[in-house]
Design a binder for these strands. Structure first.
Lengths: 343, 343
DNA sequence: CTGAAAGCGCTAACAT
DNA sequence: ATGTTAGCGCTTTCAG
């Protein structure tokens, strides 16, 4: 492969001059420029961005870290939305995206220290992740698309108001007359799941409803887990009239589970989701859910990171809570046999 | 940031020795090793993969090129499947994934020449893409997940049997009595779309059916395009009884379009998709479609690329056609008012 | 077992 | 307007 040196020799100019015409910088006489350009094309010379990065310290690449398996990541349409938001912004800034999945064993900050990326966007980080301090205290340019700890941290993040979102659905269900409400939650090591459960408890308490611990189950945000949990809960003597789910896949699974037991949704049980992934509008019955704007989340995260990389990052760190929106479709309905329904 | 040199000074050994302990190579006396390790941890030294790559010529990164906007890529669940397949294999080999979207202006081979990746996987490359020769003649380690030209090229690719898949649905529709069949196709610059249309023509001819050019429309693989095209076609005096679509999003859009005209699917018109994205099973009516195994495609592409990068690539190039599978669900049904139905 | 020197391909001062 | 000289942080001969 031809190097800058080969070009300089062939074109009879100094290395620096070649560098100049390649980078379009400084003034180079038109004659030399043309000659160099000619040689470059003759030799098929390609500047090595690698070498350039080594000296400039810039890679023009943003790392996106999702510490879950590829199977998990691409099965959850939520990530799709966030990636789309990130992708659009990076595209616009002509930055590349280094996608780093799985391998929880590794310290993500490495990606930055190894000089493979100029900054990091981190998605769905588990609470028990051994996150290195430097990611939290701003030593590494990083933005999270989730709160990382329950207590606040001096780091940049954008997250949805998960607790508030759950409160929205619970209120909605209540207005339909439901007073016996269960919750199919996500894994305990995700802040999202904790916030949702907190929102759930809060909403119940606020309206004087009883929380039945038997009806609050921990799953893993998947179709299968939703199906199993729903069947479990509906197997008790005392059964809820509504099931709030921590994500849409869980909800779809729960619907199937409940149906397999011979119950109708929403006639017998109301079931709601969370995320509003593209699928939610198409299921039968179409899912009543809480929309969290993953796309916006991705965009904001990417934009914030770019500011940071340009040295104009927000101080103190930017911490944004995105509002959620209740999307009422067909999987929620009036509580069955309910006199006190006040709709 | 601490460099290898800092460590060597501090530990009072040569740079090379530090390099040795870092890479676990060669024999280093246990005493020195411990001392060096200690200094490394004291200084918080991180080897720069960038510098290492410059000298070794290996980046441990695979480039995935999708020359479409982020919006398009993440709206099409098909890419999700392929990325999942690729992601799983790379994960397993501890390789990173550099996702390169949009920017059709750039010669993708650059990614390799700039030494940012060790090899390339290319998805959904348009026919009119100014692909540089080196991608086709094996000068750059590359695998395509689509045929790149209609005529064969000496390059590695895995693709689905799109023509065969369309023949499968057409046969299915015929067995339901349909003889008036339309086709909502994808853009003309995608080989996929061309193969599908070819399969369509072939299937009709093989069974002595007439092809009505008015019913063959070119769209762009999207909900909106499917909706519009379906409305168009159903607006003619002579209308087809079945509409074959080039992808699932088109089909879902077509269903909605047809419904908006007051027709039932499949009672009045049968509509079929292509891909079998996760959504297809959930729509109302659930989509009859052709499953192409994007996941497998991704896996094979990644595995082939890794072989190539290891110098044990297939020769001649590996060119695989993956079989498709007809998935019959609820959007296809008996042709309306049809005496000659032989089911 | 360990070290010195050369260089990967490029840019950044600082000349000229 | 152009060239010279140092490196960027690491690995690799080839010697000790």
């Amino acid at each position: 492969v031809a190097t800058i040196k080969d070009v300089s020799v062939q074109a009879q100019v100094s290395i620096k001059t070649v560098s100049r015409v390649v980078n379009g910088s400084a003034e180079v006489s038109e004659a030399t420029r043309q000659r160099v350009l000619q040689v470059i094309s003759d030799l098929g010379y390609r500047p090595s961005l690698l070498a350039k990065s080594l000296v400039t310290g810039k890679t023009n690449t943003v790392g996106v870290v999702i510490p879950h398996t590829a199977a998990y990541v691409f099965a959850h349409l939520y990530f799709n939305q966030v990636l789309r938001g990130i992708g659009e912004v990076l595209e616009q800034h002509r930055l590349d995206l280094l996608l780093h999945l799985g391998r929880k064993d590794m310290n993500y900050a490495e990606l930055y220290h190894q000089q493979r990326v100029d900054g990091l966007i981190l998605l769905a980080i588990p609470l028990d992740d051994p996150l290195h301090h430097e990611l939290l205290d701003g030593r590494v340019p990083a933005v999270f698309t989730c709160r990382v700890r329950e207590n606040d941290n001096p780091t940049n993040w954008v997250d949805s108001d998960a607790a508030g979102g759950i409160e929205q659905v619970v209120d909605h269900l209540q207005s339909l007359g439901h007073r016996e409400i269960g919750f199919l939650s996500g894994p305990d090591n995700l802040v999202l799941a904790r916030l949702q459960r907190e929102g759930f408890r809060h909403a119940l308490r606020a309206s004087g409803l009883q929380l039945n611990p038997e009806w609050v189950r921990i799953g893993e945000y998947s179709f299968e887990s939703g199906r199993r949990l729903a069947i479990d809960v509906m197997g008790f003597d005392r059964r809820p009239t509504a099931l709030v789910c921590g994500d849409d896949m869980t909800a779809v699974g729960a619907i199937r589970g409940v149906q397999s037991l011979g119950n109708q949704v929403p006639t017998d049980v109301s079931i709601t989701g969370f995320d509003d992934v593209v699928l939610a509008g198409y299921t039968v019955p179409a899912l009543t859910t809480v929309r969290q704007d993953g796309y916006q989340k991705g965009r904001i995260a990417a934009e914030t990171l770019i500011e940071i990389m340009n040295g104009s990052g927000p101080d103190p760190p930017r911490q944004i809570v995105l509002a959620t929106e209740l999307i009422v479709r067909d999987s929620s309905g009036l509580v069955p046999n309910c006199q006190e329904n006040r709709l």
